[in-house]
Nucleic acid binder design. Structure first.
Lengths: 107, 107
DNA sequence: GAATCATACCTAGGATAACAAGGTATCATA
DNA sequence: TATGATACCTTGTTATCCTAGGTATGATTC
């Protein structure tokens, strides 16, 4: 039932490379504050994904700021697809229960 | 991000009273095996909800089997509404990110 | 020029939900 | 008679997530 932070991070990085702090703000903004993943959640996720070869990072200096930019690897893209599928299947299944038992068996 | 088992249990009990083992099977069936909550998950949830006054239980003998039937209280119904709202809001927010950044700010 | 806020990185530690794995007992079936 | 299905339960572990803290720079405000 877990893995949502990882899924969101991967999805954001699919469009363009981003740095950690930026990702935290983007999630806040795009969900209208509904999802507020702290840095304490996002950074470990980024480190874990990079360790697994799903991301690659590059430190860059921008306006006197040191940023670590992350981008998706092929493996990361694959992982994004897998997680998205799982998520869709899971929420669909839960939704079926929430709507009511009538849709139970089409067999 | 947690509380899905609780939500599903409450939703099933909204329609009719059920016993624990039955709930485990119902979740398996209605989600077509996608969600397979074990008894080790469902029973503690039932006990917790009853302790909080969201459920009331009644032990009954049926065909030589001892079953504990649970039904929703007013408080449990309230809790179901709240959890459903949270779940809808959360999945909607995540979906917005998964679909892409274009829907970010309508302001 | 001092203090505060925003930016930008990081980690250690704790809470807790979810699960696996076990245990008991009865009834039906093979 | 042995296995599987029914029906209840708890203990202990794990993984995830979050809180809370720490550092440092630049911008803004007072």
């Amino acid at each position: 039932m877990a893995g949502v932070p990882e899924l969101m991070v991967l999805r954001l990085l699919k469009d363009r490379e981003m740095y950690g702090y930026e990702i935290v703000q983007a999630i806040r903004g795009q969900t209208r504050e509904v999802v507020q993943l702290s840095e304490g959640v996002v950074y470990p996720v980024l480190h874990g994904l990079e360790k697994d070869g799903a991301l690659k990072s590059q430190r860059r200096e921008v306006g006197g700021r040191s940023r670590v930019y992350y981008s998706l690897t092929a493996r990361g893209l694959r992982r994004l697809f897998d997680l998205t599928d799982s998520w869709t299947e899971l929420t669909g299944a839960i939704q079926a229960v929430l709507k009511g038992a009538s849709h139970a068996r089409t067999i």
